[in-house]
């Protein structure tokens, strides 16, 4: 079964992203939303963790990234989706875990 994880907190303020990464299995997807999108940019230690996490798909909610002025800082290999894409991801995965 493939799980969709959502993370909505900055990795620099909260340990939630790390907790999620530690419990995400291969084949699952981590979707960064709200303040979680700060993990999706380049030039910091979290970007390295994302690059090194094999077997996990990373995605970011584009509207949240745009709102925060960080579209140009987006790291490679992170898929940008909109709310329609968010809905599709929920449908395509077997269940959803929101790391609040």
């Amino acid at each position: 079964m493939a799980l969709l994880h959502t993370v909505n907190k900055s990795p620099f303020e909260s340990n939630t992203f790390n907790t999620c990464l530690g419990l995400a299995k291969q084949g699952s997807t981590i979707l960064l939303i709200e303040d979680g999108v700060y993990a999706a940019t380049t030039g910091h230690s979290v970007a390295e963790k994302i690059k090194n996490a094999s077997g996990i798909t990373f995605a970011v909610l584009g509207p949240d990234l745009q709102a925060r002025g960080l579209e140009s800082k987006l790291a490679d290999d992170i898929k940008v989706i909109d709310y329609d894409g968010f809905v599709n991801m929920v449908v395509e995965h077997d269940s959803v875990q929101s790391w609040l």
Binding site: G22, K25, W99, L100
Partner: peptide, 18 residues
């Protein structure tokens, strides 16, 4: 363990978080 917890989470139908 963390790995076992990952398996437990992966096996659920409905996950409620608060």
């Amino acid at each position: 363990s963390r790995a076992e917890m990952a398996d437990v989470l992966d096996d659920q139908d409905i996950i409620l978080s608060f």
